[in-house]
Design a protein around this nucleic acid. Structure first.
Lengths: 127, 127
DNA sequence: CTAAACTTTGACATCAATGTCAATGTCAAC
DNA sequence: GTTGACATTGACATTGATGTCAAAGTTTAG
């Protein structure tokens, strides 16, 4: 698929898809005419890249995480101690973020319940 | 306490503490000399503000969330339907972020296990 | 064949978060 | 009371993520 379709399916502006590619988060084949060519799996990867960046990771760190994710699906992934330490540091960052967001999420939900707007919480949960 | 001490205790640069205050995320009393005066509870609030901003919320949204958190501790918090809907939207965003980060967190941890660096995962978990 | 819609690259603009610096005032220690 | 550490405000710079626009080639619909 071409970049426009990927953009539509992921909701990510083409500008960002190209930018992420420049940052090494995404890659793409090229058709004979020079157009970027994506396949189904790129939809997933692009969406995850976007999610990580929107969650406050820099593109550089998002790349490291995404690469680990894909390597995960490889048989017998290889990883130097140095990279492993870098990832462990990332892991700590992610855990911190998760703790912070979880806490806020729960507080917001609790607040809505307290103020008799619990129906909205249910609506979000249902989505 | 003065801003320098708050900065040391939270690890947040004084520049940012002032900036967050300007954005309404934090507030401070003032001593007779004009210096900002903080109390213990500000340490917590500042740290949470920082966490939210680093988790990708804009200062404006972080303020909304933090305000809901504090209101939560109030007896009989009040909330218009409009604010509630705004918070519900925020809740959805937080849930998305959480899902994304959780997935990456697990993938990174799994990758470290797969590559025989599970000890690093344990080290992070212990911290 | 032509016009509209898409793609490419690259330049330039914007916005939020953050760093850095300067001029000035305050405070604590010697 | 002078000096050094810390505070205040305000200006300016930087960086990363985005938006926007332009010039040029490509594709597709009519």
């Amino acid at each position: 698929m071409k970049i426009g379709e990927l953009s539509e399916r992921t909701g990510i502006p083409t500008r960002m898809l190209r930018y992420y590619e420049g940052q090494g988060l995404l890659s793409s084949g090229r058709s004979a005419n020079g157009y970027r060519a994506y396949d189904e799996s790129d939809v997933e990867r692009a969406a995850r890249a976007r999610g990580l960046v929107q969650s406050g990771l820099t593109t550089r760190l998002a790349k490291v995480v995404l690469d680990a994710e894909s390597a995960c699906r490889t048989a017998a992934p290889v990883c130097t101690r140095e990279l492993a330490e870098m990832l462990a540091a990332e892991l700590a960052v992610l855990d911190e973020r998760l703790a912070c967001l979880t806490r806020s999420r729960d507080a917001v939900a609790r607040f809505l319940q307290l103020t008799e707007h619990g129906d909205l919480v249910d609506a979000v949960a249902a989505a």
